[in-house]
Design a protein around this nucleic acid. Structure first.
Length: 267
DNA sequence: GTCCAGGGTAAGC
DNA sequence: GCTTACCATGGA
């Protein structure tokens, strides 16, 4: 089906380091999420062809791509004063914050520590290939907590997790045996959610913030990784205006991340 | 071969 | 409370 998503930057979103299951194709991307496969192709300015029917679009993808949010309104919010922020917005304003599944996002960002984005993608693909349900020929959904909880040690190690293996397995087990319910955590406020996520092994403040932003749609989560830290140090020595941009801090953080990497020639 | 990657943990102070 | 060494692997 064909959908109009004004201003959506598919390429930047797919490579933005928030989701690791976009696979580049000849004319677009193949995305695996929510146990489904979706190919996306831009066929005109703001026009996209999706390989799904209306029912799946309404039930899954419209929500996944956060289509209910008006990203254009951000432009009026960022005043000219903020030089670097303005440039970041101009570059990255087509990036949308995806609403990913909590478990997959949690595992992805546990793996992310001291790994490059391509390396994270490779790990996630390995986990899916070895432990995920087949949803199409050669295509695997991300594994369930149960599948990773009982996974064979050798098979798990072969996914390239390195020293994060016990983190991934421990987290999967805490969810599989019901100790923590990720869906119930939607009801928590930001402070509680940030705290609860850090109960998982291998999850600190930064990873918890990523999961809040990319899986729980907490738009004020502001993950500080090495790139954002560099931006804060170099461009906001007086401090970042957190109060002024409350409500969209996470989006701005993502734009700063994309722009900083772009400037460094990494995107 | 070298360097670095969307950090967390445990030990030390 | 705040620093610091260490962590295993792949991609550039």
């Amino acid at each position: 089906m064909r959908v109009r998503i004004p201003g959506f930057n598919l390429r930047l979103t797919a490579q933005s380091g928030q989701c690791f299951r976009f696979h580049q194709q000849e004319n677009g991307y193949l995305l695996i999420a929510h146990g489904k496969m979706l190919s996306i192709e831009e066929v005109g300015d703001g026009l996209f062809d999706l390989s799904c029917d209306q029912a799946d679009f309404d039930a899954i993808w419209a929500h996944y791509f956060d289509l209910g949010r008006d990203y254009a309104a951000l432009r009026q919010l960022v005043i000219e004063d903020d030089g670097y922020l303005h440039k970041a917005l101009h570059y990255a304003q087509g990036v949308r914050i995806l609403r990913q599944q909590p478990f997959e996002t949690l595992i992805a960002f546990i793996i992310s520590q001291r790994k490059s984005i391509p390396a994270i993608s490779t790990c996630m693909a390995q986990l899916a290939a070895r432990f995920g349900e087949v949803i199409a020929p050669g295509i695997h959904a991300f594994p369930t907590p149960q599948a990773l909880a009982i996974a064979d040690e050798v098979d798990l190690a072969a996914c390239g997790l390195g020293y994060r293996l016990p983190y991934v397995r421990g987290t999967a087990r805490m969810i599989a045996d019901g100790r923590i319910n990720l869906e119930a955590m939607h009801a928590l406020d930001d402070v509680q959610l940030h705290q609860q996520l850090q109960a998982f092994p291998g999850v600190g403040a930064k990873v918890a913030s990523c999961v809040m932003l990319f899986a729980y749609a907490r738009m004020d989560a502001f993950p500080v990784d090495v790139w954002i830290q560099k931006v804060l140090d170099a461009e906001f020595p007086e401090g970042f205006p957190f109060e002024r941009y409350q409500g969209v801090l996470g989006i701005l953080q993502q734009y700063l991340f994309c722009y900083a990497r772009h400037e460094a020639g990494r995107l």
